[in-house]
Structures are given as C-alpha cells and as structure tokens.
C-alpha cells in the first residue's frame, strides 16, 4: 500500500482517473486509511465534476422522464382529496385529519427506517473495513511467504553450488590453480578450478577489495595471445566471490588467466589493469 500522502497533483490524477489501474488501486487503498488524502481527493472530484458544465447542454427525450420515474418507482400520489371535497366537505375534512395522522405516523416510521438503514449501513461498512484489513493481512502474509520461498530457493541453489564445487575439487578430471595478486593493496586468497567432467569453470576468492560504483571485476583467459572474457563478478560485503560458468563454446584450453577492473557491465576488450594473475595453468592444456 502507498504509505506517503498523495500530492495535490496525484489526487487530481486519481479523481480524473488517468492513473494506471495499479496506481489507482494503491491511491484508493491509501485514501481509505487517510482522512487528509481522502479530503484532497474529494476536493479534486468537486473541481473535476465542473468540467461537465463546459459543453452546451442537450435535453433528453421527454419520454425519458416517465421511464425514469417508473423504473425508480417514484410516482406522484393520486390527488383524490380535492375530488372528494366536491361531494362531501365533511367527509373530506375527516379524511384530511386521518391523512394528517397517517402522514405524521408515516414520517415517524420513516425516520425509524432511515435510522435503521443507517445502522445497517454502518454495520456493513465495518464489515467492509474488516474484509479490507483481512485482505491486506493476506497480501502481507503472501509477500512474506514469497520472500521465504525465494530465500529457501536461494539457499538450496547455494547449497547445490557448494556440492558441485566440492565435486569439482575432488574430481580427477579437474585442475586447480592459485590466484596471485599482481597489484599493490590486493592480497586475495583464491583458486581457479577447471572441471572437465562438469565442463564448468570456477573462480573462488576472498579478501577482495570492494570496488567503487561503476566498476566491476572481469575474468579473462588468454588463448593464443588473445584475451577472451569469461564474465564479470562482484564480491559480497565480506570480500568473498564465487564465480562459476560453463565453458564457452570452442574453449578447450588456456594459456593464462587474469582478473582486471573494468567499468560496470564489463568491457568487450580488456582495458583495465590486471589485479590478479592465475598461476600454474599447465593442467588446463
């Protein structure tokens, strides 16, 4: 639900109905719980309604009035009293008194009905409010459930990666090389693992310095004197990074590997200085 107050412009947009359905719903839900914004919307509605006065007015067909009165069940009562008075003034007087009594009784009864309807309306409104708050609770629970599912899925994925990496380390078909810092201020501890069986390459390192915004680490392999990008990665808050990818098509050997710092998103060609060098790649041949 939208938590900030609606600006006048947003209230105008809501009253005009130009917001997309999702924004319209969010504004309505907020206004339900916020007297200030509800008042702002009502004010905008009053202003906008005046636009209907702009075009010249056309009268509806005269027959429409009859149709509307009939459909509403709003008919004039028959004016029988004057006709009765022509025949018997005394009888008409009696009837008039009776009619007045009935009328007053009717008004009292009507007042009771209106009050009863108001009570009923208030009860219904409270039920609507309850239903709305239950709906919001369900939405909140659903969101929490989705987040929990996403976390569980992520944990499962990480666990699967851990197992795969362990298998890569233990596999007789895999080769491991050490990551060596070649720039000042970098003291990483890491390994590059080539897993021939799973056809995957792992780069795992810790103590990686955090980069500034707009920068990323990029892993390159040197094949026949030409650097080829294997992708970019960022360490987490503790400086740990685990980068894994399947072997690119046509790549079966490496002469060396290097990690550089490139602009965010990665570079098509190596431009940044090398910060790590991957040593002892003889096993990759």
């Amino acid at each position: 639900m939208q938590t900030e107050h609606l600006s006048q412009a947003e209230a105008d947009e809501y009253a005009l109905g130009v917001l997309d359905p999702e924004a319209q719903r969010a504004a309505a839900q907020h206004a339900l719980a916020c007297d200030e914004c509800r008042a702002r919307i009502l004010d905008a509605q009053r202003l906008i309604a005046l636009l209907a006065l702009a075009p010249p007015v056309q009268a509806p067909p005269p027959a429409l009035k009859r149709r509307v009165l009939r459909a509403a069940g709003a008919r004039r009562e028959r004016r029988w009293l004057p006709r009765l008075a022509r025949f018997s003034p005394a009888a008409a007087g009696l009837v008039a008194v009776a009619a007045a009594v009935v009328s007053i009784a009717g008004m009292v009864s009507l007042r009771g009905q209106v009050e009863s309807l108001r009570d009923e309306n208030a009860l219904l409104q409270s039920k609507v409010d309850d239903a709305l708050s239950q709906r919001f609770e369900i939405v909140a629970l659903t969101n929490r459930l989705s987040q929990a599912e996403a976390s569980a899925w992520e944990a499962q994925y990480e666990s699967q990666l851990d197992r795969d990496m362990l298998m890569a380390v233990l596999s007789p078909d895999s080769q491991t090389a050490e990551v060596i810092a070649v720039a000042d201020g970098f003291t990483p501890v890491g390994r590059l693992i080539w897993d021939g069986q799973q056809q995957r390459l792992w780069f795992v390192a810790s103590r990686l310095p955090k980069l500034s915004d707009g920068e990323t680490y990029q892993l390159w392999v040197n094949v026949d004197g030409r650097y080829r990008s294997l992708g970019t990665f960022q360490p987490d808050e503790s400086g740990f990074a685990r980068f894994v990818r399947y072997m690119p098509e046509g790549l079966s050997r490496y002469e060396s590997a290097v990690v550089t710092i490139e602009r965010a998103g990665g570079s098509p060609e190596r431009t940044g200085p090398g910060v790590f060098f991957v040593a002892d790649l003889s096993g990759f041949r």
Partner: peptide, 22 residues
Amino acid sequence: VARDPAAFGVLYDRYAPLVYST
C-alpha cells in the same frame, strides 16, 4: 430522503439535461 416523488421530479427536470449531455 423523505420519499417525496414530486421533489424527485423537480430534481430530474433541473438536472436531467446536464446528466444526459455528459
């Protein structure tokens, strides 16, 4: 509100053209 059809008829006469045109 007090269920007077005559008052309803007057309101109709007064505003039906505006409502219809809109």
